[in-house]
C-alpha cells in the first residue's frame, strides 16, 4: 500500500514566524487550504515590518547584499519544489537570477542615485538615497514566484521592510518563498507575506497610516485607483510596475533622497 503523504498547512509569514490567520479562516487555492489573512493580520504584519525596519535598513549595504544573495542560494537549493509551485524550472531560474541581480545592487545605489552637489557657498552638500520605510506590495498573480519576487525585491534591496499580499490565485510559491526566507538571514519582519483575498487586504494596507509606500502592481485598474486614493491619507508613494521587470529605478521608487549640508570652515 502506498504511503499517505503528510500534507502541509499553509500559513502566513509575519515577523519571521508562521502564524495561522487570526480569523481562523482559510481559502482554497491550487488545491490546498491556504490561510486567509484578515485586517488584523495586516495590522500585525505592518507592526512586524515597522519594528524590523531599523535593523534591516541599518545593516551595511554590503551585508544586505549578502543576505539577498543568500535568498537566491536558498531558492536554488530547493528549485524542484519551487518549480512545482510555479510555471516551472525556468521561472525558478529566472527568479534566482533576478535576486542575484538585485543583491548586487545593494551597495551601489548610493553611488548611482546619490550625488555631491556643488552649491554656491562654503558648504559641503551631498545627497544620499534612504529607504522609505514600510512598503506594501500587492503582488501580481502571474507569474506566481517571479512576479512576487520582481515586486518585493526592489523595495527590499533598498532597505525597506515589506508586507506583501501574495498572488491570490497562486499563493503556494509565496509560502514556499517564506520558508526559504525564514531559513535565510533576512531579519524576521523584514519581509511579511499574507495570503488571502487581495481585495480584502490591499485597502487596509493602502489606508494604513504606518505604511509609507504601496506597490499596486497586482491590482486591476479600478482597484489600483481605489488603493491610490486611499494611499493619499498619509501621502504614500504609489508604484505601479510590471510583473516581470528589473531595474534600479524600481529600487529608486522606494527610496527617499536625503540632502545634507555642512559648512566648510576652519
Amino acid at each position: 500500500m502506498a504511503r499517505l503523504p503528510v500534507k502541509k498547512t499553509y500559513k502566513l509569514f509575519i515577523g519571521g514566524a508562521f502564524p495561522r490567520s487570526e480569523s481562523g479562516r482559510t481559502y482554497e487555492a491550487e488545491g490546498q487550504n491556504v490561510a486567509r489573512a484578515s485586517r488584523k493580520d495586516v495590522r500585525d504584519a505592518v507592526r512586524a515590518a515597522r519594528s524590523a525596519f531599523p535593523k534591516w535598513a541599518g545593516m551595511t549595504a554590503y551585508n544586505r547584499g549578502q543576505v539577498l544573495y543568500r535568498i537566491a542560494e536558498m531558492i536554488e537549493a530547493r528549485d524542484s519544489e519551487f518549480a512545482e509551485l510555479s510555471t516551472g524550472l525556468e521561472e525558478v531560474e529566472r527568479t534566482v537570477d533576478r535576486i542575484v541581480w538585485y543583491a548586487g545592487w545593494a551597495d551601489k545605489l548610493a553611488q548611482v542615485l546619490g550625488s555631491s552637489n556643488p552649491v554656491s557657498g562654503p558648504y559641503f552638500n551631498f545627497t544620499v538615497p534612504e529607504p522609505t520605510g514600510v512598503v506594501a506590495v500587492v503582488a501580481p498573480d502571474e507569474p506566481p514566484l517571479l512576479g512576487l519576487v520582481s515586486r518585493v525585491l526592489p523595495a527590499l534591496t533598498g532597505g525597506n521592510a515589506v508586507v506583501a499580499v501574495a498572488p491570490e490565485k497562486h499563493p503556494l510559491a509565496a509560502i514556499e518563498l517564506a520558508e526559504a526566507l525564514a531559513t535565510s538571514d533576512v531579519p524576521g519582519g523584514a519581509v511579511n507575506l499574507l495570503t488571502g483575498h487581495r481585495e480584502e487586504l490591499a485597502p487596509w494596507l493602502a489606508s494604513h497610516m504606518d505604511v509609507n509606500a504601496i506597490d499596486v502592481t497586482g491590482a486591476d485598474d479600478g482597484g489600483a485607483a481605489e488603493l491610490e486614493r486611499a494611499a493619499a491619507d498619509n501621502v504614500k508613494r504609489v508604484v505601479r510596475g510590471g510583473p516581470d521587470t528589473q531595474s534600479p529605478w524600481e529600487i529608486a521608487s522606494f527610496l527617499e533622497l536625503k540632502t545634507v549640508w555642512h559648512p566648510v570652515g576652519q
Binding site: N117, P118, V119, N125, T259, W261, P263
Partner: peptide
C-alpha cells in the same frame, strides 16, 4: 534636508 551647523540654505544644485 538635514542642515548641520547651518539652516535654511538653498541652492539650485541641491535636491
Amino acid at each position: 534636508v538635514v542642515w548641520a551647523n547651518t539652516f535654511n540654505r538653498f541652492d539650485p544644485t541641491s535636491p
